[in-house]
Amino acid sequence: MRRVTDAIKHLLIINILFFVAAQLLNDEFYYAMALWFPENDNFGIWQFVTHMFMHDKSSIFHILFNMYALWAFGSPLEQMWGRNKFLFFYFSAGIGAALIHTLVNYYQFREGYQAMIGAGYTPDRIAELLPTIPPGQYLQVEGISNKVMQNFAMSYNIPAVGASGAVYGILVAFGMMFPNAELMLIFLPVPIKAKYFIPILIALDLFSGVTGMSIFGSGIAHFAHVGGALFGFIMMWYWKRNQFKNNRWD
């Protein structure tokens, strides 16, 4: 069995502690650590980091899948790179994922906001309505598509949590370092080489993010996954072109 490397071990412990704390403490802790839209009153700049240690409180599978992937794909990378280089990569991918997620949310929020202005709503009225929309619900406005209004509301009042963005960066790095390693999808128990498996997984997330049709279930920040993968690819491409690729940062 693959050993648990130093950085992986500490990341696992911190994630588990945050998950337990979210179960035991009131919602204020969850709201403070999750990543909110910048115009939401719950937003804090630290959330670009802390959201990576938070997971869905209602299901243990979210944290289990992320922690398993972190261990399975991150351990060989840390063994090659050293602890500090691995942590730099991990947090860069996670923060990059949060930035992409926030940019997509901003686009969707502005699209809905401008549509409501065009429908006759004033900025003050919109500001009054936003906090009253329950998470997962949206306003129906005549002349504006439900999809636009749904994206508008979800961008504002549903926070992002989870290590998935950072893990997708790790997946990309693993695929570039071990392209011929054979992996299996849960719903397709046939070995697929990492150089095919990981691009397919990212493409599915991109498809789900663009169309809103997800085979993985609802409530998933697909563009955060794509963002983590993108930042992971950029860092690997940069390291490949210079001396940092082969250097350990112990």
Rank of each mutant, 00 (worst) to 15 (best):
M235L: 09
G175E: 03
Y156R: 12
W237E: 07
D205T: 15
Y168N: 10
G219P: 11
G162W: 03
A181N: 00
L230F: 11
F178K: 10
G227L: 02
V172A: 07
G219R: 14
G219T: 12
L171V: 11
N157D: 05
F207R: 14
K240C: 04
V161F: 03
G227Y: 02
I186P: 07
I215C: 01
W237R: 08
L230N: 05
D205I: 13
A221C: 10
L201S: 15
V161W: 04
I198W: 00
Q243H: 13
S218P: 07
P189K: 06
I192D: 02
I198V: 15
P191L: 14
L206G: 09
I186V: 03
F178Q: 13
A224N: 09
T211G: 02
A166K: 12
W239T: 02
V161Q: 14
A229P: 07
F178C: 03
I215D: 10
A163D: 08
P179R: 10
F197W: 08
K193M: 08
I186D: 05
L201H: 07
S164I: 10
Y168G: 11
Y238T: 01
Q243T: 14
G162P: 07
P189C: 12
Y196D: 13
M184A: 06
I202Q: 03
I215T: 03
F174S: 02
G219C: 14
A160W: 00
G212F: 09
T211Q: 04
F244S: 05
F231Q: 06
G227T: 04
I170G: 02
P179A: 10
A203R: 08
I158K: 03
M235D: 02
G175V: 04
G162K: 12
L201K: 11
S155N: 01
A229Q: 10
L183S: 02
L230C: 08
H222I: 04
Y168E: 11
S214M: 08
I200K: 01
I192E: 07
A163R: 07
N157Y: 02
M154D: 13
L204A: 14
S155L: 00
G227V: 04
F233M: 15
P179T: 06
I202T: 01
D205S: 15
G209S: 12
F174N: 06
S155R: 05
I186F: 02
V190T: 15
A173N: 06
P179D: 06
A194C: 00
V226P: 14
S218W: 06
Y196W: 15
L185D: 01
W237N: 04
D205L: 12
A163G: 07
W237P: 00
A203G: 09
H222N: 08
F174Y: 12
I200F: 09
F207K: 09
L206C: 02
L171Q: 08
S208V: 04
S208N: 01
K195C: 13
P199S: 06
W237G: 00
I202F: 00
S164Q: 06
I202H: 01
G228Y: 12
M235E: 11
S214H: 03
G212N: 13
K195E: 11
A153R: 08
K195L: 01
G228Q: 15
P199Q: 12
A194D: 00
Q243P: 05
A163W: 08
F197L: 05
P191V: 15
S214R: 09
Y168S: 09
G212M: 14
Q243R: 09
I234R: 10
S155W: 01
S208D: 02
